[in-house]
Amino acid sequence: MRQGDKIALISLVAGFTVWSVGFVALYGLQALGCAYGWPTHRAVLILAYGILVAVLAVPAFWPLRSDGEASATLSVAALWANRAALGAGVLVFLPVTFTSTCV
């Protein structure tokens, strides 16, 4: 497989892979904070949320690159998928800012 094709294929799932890792991390932090009674629980969560969104923004605004027909089409689909991942990241974890952490 050529390098460009490999990148196109990986970037198709890049955003959502980050999203999944972030999901596990945030859910884990939420549970750990409650279990150990962290005083700065919400601050930690909001910080993690910020980092996650920042990381998700990278593939969502990655410039399109392609060599060849297949990777051209793939990278358009990948761009859309990564923007969807960014949107999903912003919306799904927005509740860290206002919902109650441990009740």
């Binding site: 919306l91 509740p95 206002f98 919902t99 109650s100 009740v103």
Partner: peptide, 18 residues
């Protein structure tokens, strides 16, 4: 969906046994 989920979450907060 945003409106619906937002409303539901706010409502959910109010129902919590706090």
């Amino acid at each position: 969906l945003m409106l619906l989920t937002g409303t539901a979450l706010v409502l959910g907060e109010q129902l919590l046994p706090r």
